[in-house]
Amino acid sequence: MATVEPSDIAKLAQLARIAVSEQQSGEVASRITEVLNLVDQLQAADTRDVEPMAHPLDAVQRLRADQVTEQNRREAFQAIAPAVEDGLYLVPRVIEE
């Protein structure tokens, strides 16, 4: 039986860049525990001879020729960006630690 602690929630929230308040984390933890319990039930199924299915299609990837087909559309893309300067997209500052 999987149990998710509020401390796990804090880490998951950080990885997913989602704000989960301390008040919420108890409830989120119990909900995720429920989901994991469901997964535990699924785990009980014998899948030894079953190949994992990543795609519902029985098809293979088509490959493209190595030719430039995309033109510069920076102006159009940057018109809808929240902040740009010198051709760069501006984002909240990331400091590498």
Partner: peptide
Amino acid sequence: LHEDYHGMSGID
């Protein structure tokens, strides 16, 4: 680019 763009980072 971590040069300071008004407290923001520039992305290329």
